[in-house]
Protein backbone atom coordinates (compact mmCIF):
# COMPACT_ATOMS: atom_id res chain seq x y z
CA UNK A 1 0.00 0.00 0.00
CA UNK A 2 1.32 3.47 -0.80
CA UNK A 3 2.37 5.91 1.91
CA UNK A 4 1.16 9.50 2.05
CA UNK A 5 2.28 12.53 3.99
CA UNK A 6 -0.63 14.65 5.03
CA UNK A 7 -0.83 18.00 6.72
CA UNK A 8 -3.88 17.84 8.96
CA UNK A 9 -4.68 20.61 11.40
CA UNK A 10 -1.13 21.97 11.10
CA UNK A 11 0.44 18.62 11.98
CA UNK A 12 2.18 16.22 9.64
CA UNK A 13 0.96 12.64 9.47
CA UNK A 14 2.24 9.68 7.51
CA UNK A 15 -0.39 7.15 6.60
CA UNK A 16 -0.47 3.99 4.60
CA UNK A 17 -3.64 3.69 2.56
CA UNK A 18 -5.05 2.52 -0.74
CA UNK A 19 -4.82 5.35 -3.22
CA UNK A 20 -8.57 5.62 -3.74
CA UNK A 21 -9.37 5.81 -0.03
CA UNK A 22 -11.44 8.97 0.50
CA UNK A 23 -10.03 11.52 2.90
CA UNK A 24 -13.13 11.04 5.07
CA UNK A 25 -12.10 7.49 5.94
CA UNK A 26 -8.43 8.40 6.28
CA UNK A 27 -9.42 10.97 8.89
CA UNK A 28 -11.91 8.77 10.69
CA UNK A 29 -10.40 5.30 10.53
CA UNK A 30 -6.66 5.97 10.28
CA UNK A 31 -6.14 9.24 12.15
CA UNK A 32 -8.94 8.90 14.73
CA UNK A 33 -10.33 12.30 13.81
CA UNK A 34 -13.99 11.36 14.02
CA UNK A 35 -15.40 14.89 14.13
CA UNK A 36 -15.79 14.75 10.34
CA UNK A 37 -18.97 12.80 9.71
CA UNK A 38 -20.15 10.19 7.23
CA UNK A 39 -23.61 10.92 5.88
CA UNK A 40 -24.03 9.77 2.29
CA UNK A 41 -20.64 9.01 0.73
CA UNK A 42 -21.60 10.71 -2.54
CA UNK A 43 -21.09 14.39 -1.76
CA UNK A 44 -24.78 15.15 -1.38
CA UNK A 45 -25.24 15.89 2.30
CA UNK A 46 -22.20 17.90 3.39
CA UNK A 47 -21.70 16.11 6.74
CA UNK A 48 -18.09 15.34 5.75
CA UNK A 49 -17.11 18.92 4.88
CA UNK A 50 -13.51 19.91 5.66
CA UNK A 51 -11.23 22.69 4.45
CA UNK A 52 -8.70 21.90 1.77
CA UNK A 53 -6.36 24.87 1.56
CA UNK A 54 -9.15 26.90 3.10
CA UNK A 55 -11.90 25.84 0.71
CA UNK A 56 -14.88 23.85 1.92
CA UNK A 57 -14.60 20.39 0.35
CA UNK A 58 -16.46 17.08 0.58
CA UNK A 59 -13.96 14.69 2.15
CA UNK A 60 -15.99 11.65 1.08
CA UNK A 61 -15.18 12.42 -2.56
CA UNK A 62 -11.46 13.24 -2.27
CA UNK A 63 -9.15 10.27 -2.77
CA UNK A 64 -6.05 10.44 -0.59
CA UNK A 65 -3.86 10.27 -3.68
CA UNK A 66 -5.17 13.63 -4.89
CA UNK A 67 -4.53 15.59 -1.70
CA UNK A 68 -0.82 16.24 -2.26
CA UNK A 69 0.52 19.13 -0.20
CA UNK A 70 -2.86 20.71 0.38
CA UNK A 71 -3.48 21.76 3.96
CA UNK A 72 -6.35 19.90 5.54
CA UNK A 73 -8.39 21.46 8.33
CA UNK A 74 -11.06 19.48 10.16
CA UNK A 75 -13.53 20.57 12.83
CA UNK A 76 -10.97 19.49 15.45
CA UNK A 77 -8.48 21.98 14.05
CA UNK A 78 -10.77 24.90 13.29
CA UNK A 79 -9.54 26.63 16.42
CA UNK A 80 -7.41 25.65 19.36
CA UNK A 81 -9.90 26.47 22.05
CA UNK A 82 -13.23 26.50 20.21
CA UNK A 83 -12.82 30.24 19.84
CA UNK A 84 -13.55 30.48 16.13
CA UNK A 85 -16.39 32.99 15.63
CA UNK A 86 -18.53 30.34 13.95
CA UNK A 87 -18.07 27.97 16.90
CA UNK A 88 -18.81 30.77 19.35
CA UNK A 89 -21.90 31.83 17.42
CA UNK A 90 -23.06 28.22 17.18
CA UNK A 91 -22.93 27.86 20.96
CA UNK A 92 -24.49 31.25 21.54
CA UNK A 93 -27.47 30.47 19.27
CA UNK A 94 -27.54 26.87 20.61
CA UNK A 95 -28.02 25.56 17.09
CA UNK A 96 -27.81 21.76 17.34
CA UNK A 97 -30.64 19.34 17.76
CA UNK A 98 -29.05 15.93 17.19
CA UNK A 99 -25.75 17.65 16.34
CA UNK A 100 -24.51 15.13 13.79
CA UNK A 101 -24.37 17.41 10.72
CA UNK A 102 -23.05 20.38 12.65
CA UNK A 103 -19.33 19.86 12.00
CA UNK A 104 -20.03 19.95 8.28
CA UNK A 105 -22.27 22.99 8.64
CA UNK A 106 -19.61 24.80 10.67
CA UNK A 107 -16.85 23.97 8.18
CA UNK A 108 -18.98 25.20 5.25
CA UNK A 109 -19.94 28.37 7.13
CA UNK A 110 -16.39 29.17 8.25
CA UNK A 111 -14.91 28.79 4.76
CA UNK A 112 -17.75 30.86 3.32
CA UNK A 113 -17.31 33.72 5.82
CA UNK A 114 -13.59 33.75 5.15
CA UNK A 115 -14.36 34.57 1.51
CA UNK A 116 -17.43 36.69 2.15
CA UNK A 117 -17.18 38.30 5.60
CA UNK A 118 -20.35 40.39 5.30
CA UNK A 119 -22.88 38.27 3.44
CA UNK A 120 -26.52 39.05 2.82
CA UNK A 121 -29.14 36.65 4.21
CA UNK A 122 -29.74 35.39 0.69
CA UNK A 123 -26.03 34.65 0.24
CA UNK A 124 -25.95 32.74 3.53
CA UNK A 125 -28.88 30.58 2.44
CA UNK A 126 -27.29 29.84 -0.90
CA UNK A 127 -23.92 29.05 0.70
CA UNK A 128 -25.48 26.57 3.14
CA UNK A 129 -27.67 24.85 0.52
CA UNK A 130 -25.36 21.85 0.19
CA UNK A 131 -25.46 20.88 3.86
CA UNK A 132 -28.49 18.86 4.91
CA UNK A 133 -29.70 19.19 8.49
CA UNK A 134 -32.14 16.35 8.96
CA UNK A 135 -33.44 17.90 12.18
CA UNK A 136 -34.04 21.03 10.11
CA UNK A 137 -32.36 23.53 12.42
CA UNK A 138 -31.94 25.72 9.33
CA UNK A 139 -33.24 28.93 10.87
CA UNK A 140 -30.76 28.67 13.71
CA UNK A 141 -27.91 27.79 11.40
CA UNK A 142 -28.66 30.94 9.47
CA UNK A 143 -28.87 32.99 12.64
CA UNK A 144 -25.52 31.62 13.82
CA UNK A 145 -23.79 32.32 10.49
CA UNK A 146 -25.13 35.88 10.55
CA UNK A 147 -24.01 36.29 14.16
CA UNK A 148 -20.55 34.91 13.39
CA UNK A 149 -20.22 37.47 10.59
CA UNK A 150 -20.53 40.22 13.18
CA UNK A 151 -17.94 38.71 15.53
CA UNK A 152 -14.23 39.40 15.50
CA UNK A 153 -12.07 36.37 14.95
Amino acid sequence: MPTYNLNVNKKNHTVEAEEDMPLLWVLRDLLDLVGTKFGCGIGQCGACTIHLDGSASRSCLIPISSVGDAKITTIEGLSEDNSHPVQKAWKEVDVPQCGYCQAGQIMTASAFLEKNPSPTEEEVRAAMHGNICRCSAYNRIEKAVNLAATMES
Binding site: L33, G35, I75, E76, N82, Q87, W90, K91, D94
Partner: peptide
Amino acid sequence: KNVDGKKIVTGKPL
Protein backbone atom coordinates in the same frame (compact mmCIF):
# COMPACT_ATOMS: atom_id res chain seq x y z
CA LYS B 1 -27.93 25.54 26.55
CA ASN B 2 -27.32 22.03 25.22
CA VAL B 3 -24.95 20.21 27.60
CA ASP B 4 -23.14 18.66 24.62
CA GLY B 5 -22.90 21.98 22.75
CA LYS B 6 -19.16 22.41 23.18
CA LYS B 7 -18.41 18.82 22.19
CA ILE B 8 -20.57 19.17 19.10
CA VAL B 9 -18.93 22.35 17.83
CA THR B 10 -15.44 20.97 18.42
CA GLY B 11 -16.05 17.55 16.83
CA LYS B 12 -15.54 15.42 19.94
CA PRO B 13 -16.57 11.76 19.69
CA LEU B 14 -20.17 11.53 20.80
